[in-house]
Simulated assay, not measured.
Amino acid sequence: MAPRKQQEIFQATLAQLAERGYEGLTVEGVAERSGVNKTTIYRWWPSKAALLAAALVEADTLAMEAPDTGSLRGDLEALVRGIAALLTRPPAADVAVAALGAAVHHPELAETARRFFADRFAREEQIFERARRRGELREDADPMLITDLLGGAVWLRTVFRGLPLDEGFAAEAVRTVLDGSAPARSPA
């Protein structure tokens, strides 16, 4: 399948998910919206869940490149701002919330959620590899934990609490994760 047509199918899938939720997502609706026959979709993706899984991982709508600012702190702040943009700006925000809701209510989509986050983490891992080479990160530091703490903070603040993120949120979240929140010790 041509990449452009594949992206059109993915965009139609995610748009329908955002508008109607997982229950309202149909292969027929995606086919109509993307201008292809439903048999074409079924040839590539055997089910609605498989189509959604591919769309979540491969659609341009949710694409986010790992930043490379030259420093771990800068990369993590850019990453937090990118996650915040995905969760606060339509259509990505609507897709993310609908996908999360679908994964919670439909166990067959749990693997889709794992695949999505595994793909994102694989892309972000290079941030930590570069930081280790530059001597900015301990060898025993857990990149996934750092990513989860920062990404989780954005999800909780924006999606679950419905609070806005102010201008300094990314820097403060990264500072807290990298430096902690205990007061600085004065020299003895």
Rank of each mutant, 00 (worst) to 15 (best):
E77H: 14
T61P: 11
A122M: 01
V27C: 08
M144Q: 02
E77F: 08
A110K: 14
D140W: 03
E32M: 09
W45S: 03
G101Y: 02
A84C: 13
E19P: 01
V57P: 05
P107L: 12
A85H: 15
A102V: 07
A78Y: 05
A122V: 05
G135T: 09
D148Y: 11
V80I: 04
A153P: 02
G82R: 06
A153E: 04
L137P: 04
F128W: 15
L149M: 04
R120N: 11
A66C: 04
T158G: 02
G70W: 07
R43G: 07
E23I: 11
L87F: 13
A93G: 01
T39A: 08
E125R: 12
L86S: 13
E28N: 10
V95P: 04
A53V: 00
P91M: 05
A55T: 10
R33V: 09
E111N: 08
M64P: 00
A131S: 09
A122T: 12
R81A: 09
A141D: 07
G101E: 07
A59M: 05
E108K: 02
A122G: 14
L72W: 13
E111C: 08
D142R: 02
A55W: 02
G82C: 06
V95T: 07
L145N: 02
L76R: 06
D75M: 10
A59L: 00
E129S: 13
F128S: 07
R120W: 09
L100F: 15
V97Y: 13
F160L: 15
G35A: 09
T26V: 03
L62A: 08
L150V: 00
R114T: 03
R133K: 15
M144W: 15
T88R: 06
L52I: 11
G29K: 06
E32Q: 12
R73Q: 12
A118Q: 11
A54D: 11
E124M: 10
L137E: 01
A50C: 02
R138K: 10
D60V: 03
A85T: 13
L52S: 09
R123K: 14
A98V: 12
T26N: 01
A122C: 08
R130W: 00
R134L: 02
H105S: 13
L25V: 10
D148K: 07
F128L: 00
M64L: 05
R114S: 09
L109F: 08
P107T: 09
T26I: 00
I127T: 15
V57R: 13
D94C: 01
E19K: 14
G70C: 03
N37F: 09
T112E: 05
R20E: 03
T88G: 04
I83E: 11
L79C: 03
T158I: 15
D140H: 10
D142V: 07
V104E: 14
G152W: 02
A122I: 11
F117R: 15
R73P: 07
L87W: 05
A55G: 02
